[in-house]
Nucleic acid binder design. Structure first.
Lengths: 167, 167
DNA sequence: TTAAACTTTCAAAAATTACTGAAAGTTTAA
DNA sequence: TTAAACTTTCAGTAATTTTTGAAAGTTTAA
């Protein structure tokens, strides 16, 4: 496998993984491209490499910046803007975990807490609703707390922790 | 909030979370419905409660069974088939982790290993591709190994472990 | 200021994904 | 066997999501 094959394989695999996990393909592919690029890329560079439109590129770069994993860079003396990925894998993981917790997990935990807190009325179905949503609440809440621990630790806490668990 | 409101809120929230994580809404909602139902439900029951078609119900039940989190039950003396959810939250988590690892993570790890193993050619871009995909490979591999540890432990290992990490 | 160089927005179109419903298939009781 | 009771399949349709591209917006150099 030469450079171009490897690059294309990585970009397309990353795009598919994104799709599977609810992230749009263009966004995941732009991230992949920047992740392996030694230099920041311009919008033109990205459009050309991935064969996507200017609008699509712009919108997805914006999202990647909202997620905190891509940054704008301006080269001195140039009008054009360049984009660069967060390059540290630990920081990438922290940032993704943090955002998914904030946007997706926390709101669900809130609903689970509310739903599992309704008053029992003596019926079996209400008991079951309370019992099952409470179990989900407790699991989700522990998992989320752990994620946030990770997010707020020094950068290689993840690896250290995983190592500790694995051995 | 009364029973019906709580039930509807749970089902619709679970459906939306599914969508966000790449799982189709009907599948997530059927799971939610069975999760809180004290008794197994028939296909008719599910269709009626969620206002979805027979075909849709059938296909998504099949998928839930493929994931190993919903089971067919036949009541003695009845032709109709009934469906019940895995009720243990630990087992649910184990099963979901196991399947996502097998279907989605493992194949990506394989690609990352291949891509990061290409031979360097002295160019900066090849070096960067190797370095960055290797970093991703190592993180993904550790995380996956941990997931599989969890999957193969006794049922409340998750909670114990999370507790240990949190305090 | 002006206008060139660039980015963002957004309505419309395309692509993808999910859903329906009727026909085909299967199972079981008699 | 037959036929009733049920489930699955799948082609067509609908809904949703993504993408495009041109117009509007912004920035900066002169």
């Amino acid at each position: 496998m030469n450079y171009t094959e490897a690059k294309d394989k990585f970009i397309s695999t990353w795009g598919s993984l994104g799709t599977l996990w609810g992230i749009n393909k263009a966004m995941a592919q732009i991230h992949a491209l920047l992740w392996i690029s030694p230099e920041p890329l311009s919008m033109e560079d990205i459009m050309e490499e991935l064969h996507i439109s200017r609008g699509n590129t712009s919108m997805n770069l914006r999202q990647l910046m909202d997620w905190g994993i891509v940054f704008k860079e301006s080269k001195p003396g140039e009008r054009k803007e360049y984009f660069a990925s967060e390059k540290d894998v630990q920081e990438l993981a922290r940032q993704v975990a943090k955002e998914r917790s904030r946007r997706e997990i926390k709101p669900v935990i809130k609903v689970l807490r509310e739903v599992s807190a309704i008053e029992g009325d003596g019926t079996k179905k209400t008991e079951e609703l309370i019992k099952q949503t409470k179990a989900l609440y407790e699991l989700a809440d522990s998992a989320d707390t752990m994620m946030n621990k990770i997010v707020n630790q020094e950068s290689n806490w993840i690896t250290k922790t995983l190592m500790k668990l694995i051995k």
